[in-house]
Amino acid sequence: MNGSLFYLNLVMNGLVQGLVIGLAALALTLVFAVARFPNAATGDLMTVGAYAGIGVQALNVRSVIVQGAAAILACSVLAIGQYWFVLRYLRGRGLVSLLLASIGLALATRGALSFFVGQDQYLFNTPIMRPYVIAGLRVQVVDLWLAVASLVCVTATFAMLFLTPVGRRMRAIADNAELARASGIRMQRVMIPLWAAVGAICGVAGMILGIKTVVLPEAGWHILLPAFAAMVLGGLGNPIGAVVAGILLGVVQELSTPFVGFTYKIALSFIVLAVILTVRPQGLFGSAEVVR
């Protein structure tokens, strides 16, 4: 493999990693934009999605679409439940209360899940497909699907935010919650669709993570830290920023491996974050206004 191709393949690897992280960051940032806290339960929500998919597979349903639909359904129900029974009561209580509550929800979700599914790993029985080799660049079939799924998620999120009335209300709340309420926007009517959307994204992200890796109770939790970094780097509350930042961090991370090795790369996203925040405290794509 010649030099430039080697790096090109690394970029490819980074893109794939970044898409997974970007999807999780998208779910995080959507919550942040409207409810103003980093939702630590996101990772475990993804785990639940992966297990929902596995559950459908265990019923001998081979279709990834059906498995994914189950994952989306399970995650949306759980996300709405978490909002309805816990997070709803913490509105206006500040970032720390909400963050801690979401950590509690994350642990409770994982505990309940592992009580029933145990600690053994589960696998999606996806057939192994050979990659397309385009001018020496290896493109995996599964990664193409990943890219398509990510694109669909991002597009759907944008369509929801900018083309639907509920999206307009979400943006109004994101801009100024008090003003939005004063102008007659009912919180519940916005929050339920929001958490449903967050659940749907987590379901897709969880399925993708499950198909690419193995399904274990702690699988989603491990994605949380890099996803946090992507969310902040993207400018808190900026959906496109989160996905772009996720991809960017993935690419930088993989490109760095010939120089810093395979251990430092997992901290690299935070180092990049620290450097960029020193120069630009509002993040890459955050305007001063969005951050407030």
Binding site: N9, L10, N13, Q17, T213, A219, K265, I266
Partner: peptide
């Protein structure tokens, strides 16, 4: 030597197979 709990190990594999 690779770190656990990653969504993909492709760069590690690429280095091992280079």
């Amino acid at each position: 030597i690779y770190e656990p709990n990653q969504p993909s190990y492709r760069s590690e594999i690429q280095a091992a197979l280079a």
